[in-house]
């Protein structure tokens, strides 16, 4: 069975001629992916929905100037990423105001502790079905700085090249390379702080004390 729906280039050309149905088709094709990128970066569903809407409105307005030098979705993700970064900047004031409160909460709660012992996660796609694993993934992602989430999401979710990300985030390629490395390292550390070890369990060894950070890692499980 072949896909008879028009490709992006065709739809963009029709939308540039003012065909609203063509732009709606592009919206239907990409709205969820745009939302996923946005929620991955800003970590708030309502804000991500607003950003998705703004991204499409901005794309429509800029459509006459879209030359097709990059693919439509790469261009759309650039717009989305920029809106997310701007959103983060606008939110800094708010976050600064509530910083003392947040710090107080962290000091009370202490560092992250694995709540369910140590899990060795070989296949994250399957493991995410378990609520405690999914929550740990979410918390770890929440913990990353927004600039690190942006590169991680654009790379891992949309496979954007370093050059495209550098263009989208207005920084040199070397910066993207460095951020991506640190984002991955921090993500792994944040997961380990929650008792999630990515990889197979060591043969015959109980390494619960190795990565649990002294938390209640009394049991160990291997998650597919």
């Amino acid at each position: 069975m072949t896909d008879s729906s028009p490709d992006d280039r065709t739809l963009v050309a029709r939308a540039q001629r003012g065909e609203r149905a063509a732009f709606e088709a592009l919206f239907r094709r990409y709205h969820r992916r745009v939302f996923t990128v946005a929620v991955g970066i800003v970590r708030n569903e309502a804000d991500a929905l607003d950003i998705a809407q703004e991204a499409f409105v901005k794309a429509f307005r800029s459509l006459p100037r879209f030359q097709g030098n990059s693919s439509f979705y790469t261009w759309l993700y650039r717009i989305t990423a920029n809106l997310c970064i701007d959103h983060g900047r606008r939110g800094k004031k708010h976050r600064a105001a509530s910083f003392d409160e947040a710090r107080s909460a962290v000091e009370t709660a202490g560092p992250a502790r694995p709540a369910f012992g140590l899990h060795h996660v070989e296949d994250p796609d399957e493991a995410v079905a378990r609520a405690e694993i999914r929550d740990a993934f979410r918390e770890a992602l929440d913990e990353l700085p927004e600039i690190h989430r942006a590169v991680l999401v654009l790379r891992e979710l949309e496979g954007m090249s370093y050059a495209d990300m550098a263009d989208a985030l207005d920084c040199p390629k070397g910066t993207i390379m460095s951020r991506l490395y640190h984002a991955r390292r921090k993500m792994r550390e944040a997961l380990e702080a929650r008792g999630i070890h990515l990889g197979p369990a060591p043969e015959g060894g109980d390494d619960a004390s190795e990565s649990s950070g002294g938390g209640p890692a009394s049991k160990e499980a291997t998650v597919p």
Binding site: V121, P124, R134, R138, E156
Partner: peptide, 12 residues
């Protein structure tokens, strides 16, 4: 695996 965890989390 870090990449897979990010994709799995956001996909869910």
């Amino acid at each position: 695996r870090v990449g897979a965890a990010v994709r799995a989390c956001l996909g869910a």
